[in-house]
């Protein structure tokens, strides 16, 4: 049995959903255009993951295993819709920027994957920690990607200009091809670092 701290940190390093498990790529590519969008998407997914893991772990003895998938989908979709509504009400600009990728959190493989692989077999406390770790790992990765694309694509970080006026923004990083290429290179870099640091 691993400790709770290990349970938490695995989501950030060893089983980082984006860089290690390659899950949830669609929103990763689409919304990482700026740091704030990446962060917002990460927090939205974190909330859904937390809620669904919590409820599914709590109900794990109550839901018959034959209908568990539809039950999970129902629960996840509910949390997603709540996030959708709350973002629309309180952070309209972010809601507009994330657009269709908010409802699509429903089919984000991370969420259903954690429900199926973890929450239905573990206690509520462990499931919550697992969700926090995965969510934070997802948020961090998205934010880092967002910072890189925003820094070189627009010359700013979190909307604050940092590169000075002499800097010519690399517009390609803000486009679709830029998203793919940046993530690909990041992935290679992370693989390299993990090998160097001896984390497998």
């Amino acid at each position: 049995m691993s400790t709770l701290a290990q349970e938490f940190s695995k989501g950030i390093f060893k089983e980082n959903p984006i860089f290690r498990l390659l899950l949830g790529m669609c929103p990763t590519l689409a919304v990482s255009i700026t740091a704030i969008n990446g962060f917002g998407m990460g927090v939205a997914a974190l909330f859904v993951l937390l809620g669904s893991n919590l409820v599914i772990a709590a109900l794990r003895n109550f839901i018959p295993s034959k209908v568990r998938i539809p039950a999970y989908i129902l629960i996840i979709a509910t949390f997603v819709t709540i996030v959708d509504m709350v973002l629309n009400a309180f952070t309209p600009d972010l809601h507009k920027a994330l657009g269709i990728f908010i409802p699509l959190i429903v089919v984000n493989c991370i969420i259903l994957g954690r429900a199926e692989a973890f929450a239905r077999k573990n206690s509520v406390a462990r499931s919550v920690i697992d969700a926090l770790g995965m969510g934070v790992g997802f948020t961090l990765s998205l934010t880092i990607l967002g910072i890189i694309r925003e820094l070189f694509g627009k010359g700013s970080i979190f909307g604050v200009g940092v590169m000075g006026s002499a800097f010519e923004p690399m517009g390609i990083l803000a486009t679709a091809p830029g998203a793919f290429i940046t993530l690909g290179i990041m992935l290679g870099f992370v693989n390299f670092m993990f090998k160097r640091l001896g984390i497998e």
Binding site: I75, T81, M85
Partner: peptide, 19 residues
């Protein structure tokens, strides 16, 4: 099974209409 799904569905629907 049907009952479980129904209950979950009803709770979800209710929650959403409140939000």
């Amino acid at each position: 099974m049907a009952l479980t799904l129904l209950i979950i569905g009803a709770i979800c629907g209710g929650l959403l209409s409140v939000v």
